[in-house]
Design a protein around this nucleic acid. Structure first.
Lengths: 135, 135
DNA sequence: CAGAATCCAAACTGATACTG
DNA sequence: CAGTATCAGTTTGGATTCTG
């Protein structure tokens, strides 16, 4: 674990260079990770990783998302190439959303982070409680 | 890779249950991942993963962050237990920020995602360009 | 069914000025 | 040096209404 972090140090210099002299827009953290930063992006990718869903199904699956945010987040995910949108010209129409290959390849690392979050959820809650109590 | 995803399917049901019937606040994606969603959180964790930095050093390292956002993001990261803040009572005072054990353990998965972002940055840019051209 | 359009409230962010 | 305080602009998000 420690050696792994040490190995990564040289890679981190990339981000220093980007912030120092290079073009900030070329920083993957800013340009890619931040695109996944929306309130619902990760959750929807998680859902679609299981199987394709239709619009209404997703809405019921994530009941605290508004229609506007579901539409917009799916649009953004589609634009970045993570999600494929397929319209079936039935009456009334149905639309199916699924992960693209790019989206599936991103799900791997994302899920690692989600697993970490699940495992350390209590630690984070504890840290918050301790911090708030100390103030 | 495929079998790995299949193995994860049962885990994903957890999130369905949470959204369906369970308490939404207990969803780690909502309660932990979204806390890392700030514009600067990931970037600062990346920087601090290399070594501890002082406030002014971080500012120079990430030149497009405002003082306000640096203060606030470090505060939030500290509250969630990722960052340790140590004040040295010199004149003028100096404050050093470093990752906690929890923060370092989170850096692993986070860096996986950052590596993915770096590797697929062009693919994402291409998807955006293609999408925008098609409209 | 799957959205588009509109309006409004809240949150986020930055610029500036000030302080121990 | 490392903040805090205040204000203004921008973005985000939700509720509602309407449409093919």
């Amino acid at each position: 674990m420690e050696s792994r972090i040490v190995n990564l140090r040289s890679k981190l210099d990339v981000y220093k260079a980007m912030t120092d002299g290079g073009n900030i827009a070329d920083c993957p953290v800013r340009d890619v990770i931040q695109g996944l930063n929306g309130k619902w992006s990760s959750l929807l990718v998680m859902a679609l990783a299981e199987k394709p869903y239709r619009f209404g199904e997703l809405r019921r699956l994530v009941p605290d998302i508004s229609q506007r945010m579901l539409t917009q987040t799916l649009y953004d995910l589609q634009r970045d190439g993570y999600v494929h949108r397929e319209v079936f010209p039935t009456k009334p129409p149905s639309v199916e959303y699924s992960l693209t290959d790019l989206g599936r390849s991103m799900f791997g690392p994302l899920y690692e982070l989600v697993q970490w979050a699940e495992l350390n959820h209590d630690a984070v809650r504890g840290a918050r409680a301790a911090f708030d109590a100390r103030i």
